[in-house]
Design a protein around this nucleic acid. Structure first.
Lengths: 195, 195
DNA sequence: CCATTTGCCTAACCAACTTAGGCAACCTTA
DNA sequence: TAAGGTTGCCTAAGTTGGTTAGGCAAATGG
C-alpha cells in the first residue's frame, strides 16, 4: 500500500485546521484520518492517542498566539502595548476559534503546551514594564490581564454579548481602557479615595 | 420490576452532584444510571438526551450561582458589593467545580440555561448602581466584570496560577481592587491623564 | 377492577477510541 | 542490487458512550 507521508507535525497541523473548520469539540481521529485517506489506527504510529493530538494542537495554538503577541508588543509600551496585546489576542481567537478552544484545555503540568503557556506570562510581564509596578503588583497585574482578556474573548465567542445592542467592539475598547486605568492607578501602590 | 422514582429534576440533581465528584467532562449517562441502579435507556423517559441533561445541570448551576450572588450583593453597594459579588462567584466555583464547568458550556440561545444566564447580567447591573456609570458605560462595565471574574476563576481552576509563589488569594484581592479603581475612574466619563 | 398510561427493561445499532498482529513498502548496507 | 531489518499502514476486534425500538409490568384512574 502506498504510504501517506504522515508525521506528528503533519497530523497536528491538519488537526488544527480541522478544529478551526468544524470546531474543536468535533475534532476526532476519524476526521483527521479521513483527511489523509487513511484508517484511524494508522494515526497511532505518530501520536500517542486522541488526547495527545489535542494537546499538540493546544501547543501549536499557544505558540502561534505567543508569536503574534510578541510581534504586537514589540516597540510599544504602556497603553499602546496593552492595546496591541489585547488586539492580537482577540484577533487570533476570532481567526482560529478551534485552535483557541484547544488552547483553553486544562494542560498537564509537564506538557509541551504548559511550557509554551509560560511564555505568555513572560510576554505579559514585558508588556507591563511601562507601568513600572514592581513586585508583587506586577504578578497580580499579569494575572488580571490574562483573566480579563481570556474571559472577554471566551464570553464573546460563546455569544454572551450578542443579545444586547451595545457593540462588542465598543465594550472591548472600554475594557482595555479600564485595564489601563487600573494599571496606572494600581490599587496597592496608589489607593484611590472613595468619591 | 420495581420503579426507581426517577424524574428530570432528580436526574439533574444527581448529575450535578456527580459532576462535582468526578468532573463535568466525565459526567455520563451510564454514571447517572448506575447511581440509581437503573439501565441507561431508562433515562430517556425523563431527559431528551445526554446533552440535554448537561444543559439542565448548567441551568441549575447558573441558578444557584445567581442566588448566591443575589444574596451576597443584597444591602451592599460600591466596592463592598463588588467584593461580595466576586467572592460569591469564586466560592461557588471552588465548591462546585463540576457545576461551574457546566455553567461554562456554550448555551443554546433558546435554552432555559441561557435565560438564567440573563439574570446574571441583571445582578451585575444592580451591583453597579453604586458606581453611577450611566449608559453605555454600565453595559461595558457589566461585560468587564463578568469577563474578569470568569477568566480569573477559570485560570485558577486550570492551575495556571499554581506555578508561581505569589498567593492566588492576594492576586484575587488585587484584581477586585483594580476593578473597583477602574469603575470609580471609568475611562470614558473621567479620563485619567498619563503620569 | 379493567383499561390506559407510564417506567423500566432487553436487544441492537452507531460513533469514537484503542490494541494486537500482519504484510508490504522503504531503507540500509554489504 | 539483493537481503536485512525497520517502519507505516492495514484488518480485526474489543471497549465505552450514546441512542432507538419494542415489550412487559407497575401504577393510575375511571
Amino acid at each position: 500500500m502506498a504510504r501517506a507521508g504522515l508525521s506528528a507535525e503533519v497530523l497536528t497541523v491538519a488537526a488544527a485546521e480541522l478544529a478551526d473548520e468544524i470546531g474543536f469539540e468535533r475534532l476526532t481521529l476519524g476526521a483527521v484520518a479521513r483527511r489523509f485517506g487513511v484508517k484511524e489506527p494508522s494515526l497511532y504510529s505518530h501520536v500517542k492517542n486522541a488526547q495527545a493530538l489535542r494537546l499538540h494542537v493546544a501547543a501549536v495554538a499557544l505558540g502561534e498566539l505567543a508569536d503574534r503577541i510578541a510581534e504586537a508588543v514589540a516597540g510599544r509600551s504602556g497603553r499602546d502595548a496593552l492595546t496591541a496585546f489585547a488586539a492580537a489576542y482577540r484577533d487570533y481567537a476570532k481567526e482560529h476559534p478551534g485552535r483557541f478552544a484547544a488552547a483553553r484545555m486544562t494542560l498537564p503540568v509537564e506538557s509541551r503546551a504548559a511550557e509554551v503557556a509560560r511564555r505568555h506570562s513572560e510576554l505579559t510581564r514585558a508588556l507591563l514594564r511601562g507601568y513600572a509596578l514592581g513586585e508583587p503588583a506586577e504578578t497580580d497585574a499579569v494575572r488580571l490581564i490574562g483573566a480579563t482578556v481570556l474571559g472577554f474573548v471566551t464570553l464573546e465567542a460563546g455569544g454572551s454579548y450578542s443579545h444586547h445592542p451595545r457593540a462588542v467592539e465598543a465594550s472591548w475598547g472600554a475594557a482595555v481602557d479600564a485595564l489601563d486605568v487600573a494599571l496606572r492607578n494600581w490599587p496597592v501602590s496608589r489607593p484611590v479615595p472613595n468619591p
